[in-house]
């Protein structure tokens, strides 16, 4: 009955919209991108013929200018990923924890405040940070010099590591609200009974965070890390508008480089090959994260069991007074 033809057709009808969207908006562009990367494709002149892997060879040919620019952009993107993912995850988690401990009325208020920056366009964010960090009479330099912290202006946008610093804090300020919101929702989902149990076991705040909160929000944290890494790979607007890829191309990201190769350099074929290589690198990085998460998940329960049994076997811990107990008697927590 379930395998009748009409049932199959009905099922096909239901999944048809998804399939159509998948084919049109994902699979076909990806395949078309791969096809372009195998051709000598110029934006102005169109397809000048199939060249096989020639565009990929150009990217990996150490004597080629495209290689130099691609590797430089790749290195810059990894630098940004390394410096941006930890604060974007940890600060957003910290903010979420702070908000989670606020009274519910204030919780909504601050959640909105912190999320608000995420709604601002990158152009406006860049304009704000350009004004703040302009070396010549910018707000931050004026402040530092007025307070006698520095005698001469800091070249925030034209010297490293300051340029990365500006890109980093503009990114954190701009996007922190999104990750924070995911963490706030995840914290809302944590069963209060677990905290009560931990209280009874005498766990302090740090231990409650480590043994209750973190395992409970682990999947969301994993999602946040993956999406933050992917977003870091897609760095474009901030470096384009704040540092213009400088100083000396040190903040030129992969997307900026691809954009330049295609639209200024007219090399759609080579640009597409760069995009495909970038996609492969992102897939590998995401795959590694996924594998690491699976590994942690599979190891997790064992560690948990080990910890619990250890604690129960340790008489010192079993008999130790809870932090808010006086002389072994429980008192009201202030």
């Amino acid at each position: 009955m379930y395998h009748s033809k009409s049932t199959k057709y009905k099922a096909l009808l239901f999944i048809a919209p998804f399939l159509a969207c998948f084919l049109i908006f994902w699979l076909a562009p990806v395949l078309y991108g791969i096809w372009i990367s195998l051709n000598d494709y110029k934006l102005s002149m169109g397809n000048l013929g199939f060249v096989g892997l020639e565009n990929y060879k150009t990217i990996f040919d150490t004597g080629s200018v495209y290689h130099t620019q691609f590797m430089n952009a790749l290195k810059n993107t990894f630098v940004f990923m390394a410096i941006s993912v930890p604060p974007l995850v940890l600060i957003s988690l910290g903010l979420a924890l702070l908000i989670d401990n606020l009274p519910s009325k204030l919780k909504v208020f601050f959640r909105t405040i912190f999320f608000l920056s995420y709604a601002i366009s990158v152009t406006a964010v860049s304009a704000i940070f350009l004004w703040l960090f302009n070396a010549n009479g910018g707000f931050v330099n004026n402040l530092l010099m007025t307070m006698n912290i520095t005698n001469s202006p800091v070249n925030w946008l034209t010297e490293q590591p300051y340029a990365w610093f500006v890109v980093l804090i503009s990114t954190v300020w701009w996007t922190i609200g999104f990750n924070m919101l995911l963490f706030v929702n995840a914290l809302d989902e944590v069963d209060g009974a677990l905290y009560e149990a931990a209280d009874l076991d005498g766990a302090n705040s740090f231990k409650k965070f480590l043994y209750v909160t973190l395992p409970e929000i682990r999947n969301v944290a994993f999602f946040v890390i993956i999406t933050t890494v992917i977003a870091s790979f897609n760095l474009y607007g901030q470096t384009m508008l704040i540092t213009n890829g400088g100083p000396a191309r040190s903040t030129t990201s992969l997307i900026m480089n691809i954009n330049h190769t295609v639209f200024s350099g007219n090399q759609l074929g080579i640009g597409s090959a760069m995009a495909i290589v970038m996609g492969v690198i992102m897939t590998v990085v995401t795959g590694l994260q996924y594998w690491a998460n699976l590994k942690i998940n599979s190891d997790g329960p064992k560690r948990k069991r080990k910890g619990r049994s250890k604690k129960s076997e340790d008489p010192a811990l079993v008999n130790a007074p809870l932090p808010y107990q006086v002389d072994g008697k429980e008192t009201m927590k202030k």
């Binding site: 302009n134 070396a135 010549n136 009479g137 910018g138 330099n141 004026n142 010099m145 202006p153 070249n155 946008l157 034209t158 010297e159 213009n244 400088g246």
Partner: peptide, 23 residues
Amino acid sequence: SPAQLGLDGEFQTFMKNPEGGGK
């Protein structure tokens, strides 16, 4: 000329309001 003026520094410096600080 001051050093390290960066992007469009020639015009930004010309348009700089002296009361706002900077060169």
